[in-house]
Design a protein around this nucleic acid. Structure first.
Lengths: 252, 252
DNA sequence: ATGGGTGTTGCATATGATGCAACGTACTTC
DNA sequence: GAAGTACGTTGCATCATATGCAACACCCAT
């Protein structure tokens, strides 16, 4: 809606791919060098870009600080955290918390496994949306047309032979998840890793977040992991209750 | 330099403090509601702000993703990481990596302690600049006028009785650190936590990053921690060599 | 010295951001 | 249940402000 701001903000994802000099930025924005310079200067003043010694620009420090503060301001996260820790204490595996936002699912909290074998994931990192248990839970709660629209738009990368292959399979899976109130990812993202997850609901019953427990085959089999399901669901329900109680959304 | 972009970007730190509605944003920016609306819409399109159910705006998901990509693009971090892990394997304590940027020191990597007692810190979080060992290392490398200028501008919060009390003490401490080539923080940030740190240098000898090992008193005393100093310094030197070798800055 | 590459500045132009006022809609209050 | 209030939203006329241009400054390489 605002051309100038729009151009300025377009610089950020561009620099996320790696440092670039003034000329490159101007070219990729399709504007004159002097224009790019002024935009970069403004971004610089706000600490969003940084000028390294070779004069090239890259993303700046304040970006981290902002992301940091942002994640700390999420109420669900604050309420859920102690429960996630407790769950991790009991079962020892990696515990994740994720939310859905603007067509993306992303981790907002994580408690590391006590076992030496850990999975790679990181807070803020977008989730493999077509296979992750938390993603299924979050998407399953959308309305039917929304689910359909998103399923159509997604890519279905075959991380493993058990990855969700296409939109039809995904929609079917979402229906199952919606019905049963929990979800799994059995080797769909990484061959040797299984997850089970449960939804966290607000006062109105809508899913506001999802949590999951992940463990590699070498530690526990999928069957053994599934025995934790009641525990995971209970934890999710506890968090849901607490969230609904203390933090009642103003609307709907 | 660009008023429109400047205003738009000012919204981000404002929202970092917590969600706000259109009126609040407009008021705090000192612009008309309609102007604020357009700016927010543009930020929204880029995923930097998110509109929650109660219509209020808060920081958005893409911010995490950007910060994520940004941190992954830092060469020092990439090179240092395996060495930090190895150091952690050997001593078991929390290991931090930090850089200095635009008057701020911030953690860009962290390997968690193996001991149950962990310290609170997070990647992207600005460091307690007047007391942290890594901050002393990074600031000590600046030129004398730079150090003086920054020391004057800082606040000196007394986290504990052993925190750096004022600019004079800080400058003196920086001189010591500069001289000896390593730094400590003995209970200056949290009464029961000690740190020792060493600098990582580029090919030109300038300090590009700093690393530290932190441990609470209940695990090891300050004296015991200090016995790790040679190991920490060796690790820092190994990283420095590797960084200088593979990644020669184009200029200076 | 000379030339190409890059970043930077001042300036005239008109694009595009701004505030205004009016409208829509939801939630409150009497 | 009607009137009132608060908030977000839209179209529009005005002029502030972002833009591209051209000239300049600088660094490195030849």
């Amino acid at each position: 809606m605002s051309q100038t701001v729009d151009r300025a903000l377009s610089i950020l994802p561009l620099l996320a791919q790696g440092p670039a000099d003034l000329g490159q930025v101007a070219e990729r924005l399709g504007v004159h060098k002097s224009t790019a310079l002024r935009l970069l200067r403004t971004l610089h003043e706000h600490g969003l870009v940084y000028r390294q010694q070779d004069q090239r620009y890259r993303l700046g420090a304040r970006l981290f600080a902002l992301a940091q503060e942002a994640v700390e301001n999420l109420d669900v996260r604050e309420i859920a955290h102690p429960h996630l820790v407790e769950l991790n204490d009991r079962c020892g595996h990696t515990v994740h918390l994720a939310v859905y936002e603007e067509q993306e699912v992303l981790y907002i909290d994580k408690v590391e496994s006590r076992y030496p074998v850990r999975m790679y994931s990181r807070i803020g990192k977008p989730v493999a949306i077509t296979v992750a248990a938390v993603a299924k839970l979050l998407l399953a709660d959308l309305t039917e047309p929304e689910r359909r629209a998103i399923a159509e738009k997604l890519d279905y990368p075959m991380y493993t032979s058990r990855s969700t292959p296409n939109a039809a399979a995904f929609l079917k899976e979402l229906a199952v998840v919606r019905e049963q109130g929990w979800a799994t990812d059995l080797g769909g993202h990484e061959e040797s890793i299984n997850c089970i997850g449960a939804p966290i609901r607000g006062a109105d019953g809508r899913v506001v977040a999802a949590m999951s427990v992940s463990a590699p085959n070498v530690v526990v089999t999928a069957e053994e992991l599934l025995t934790l399901l009641p525990l995971v669901r209970r934890t999710a329900e506890t968090i849901s209750r607490e969230y609904s109680g203390t933090n009642r959304p103003k609307k709907v």
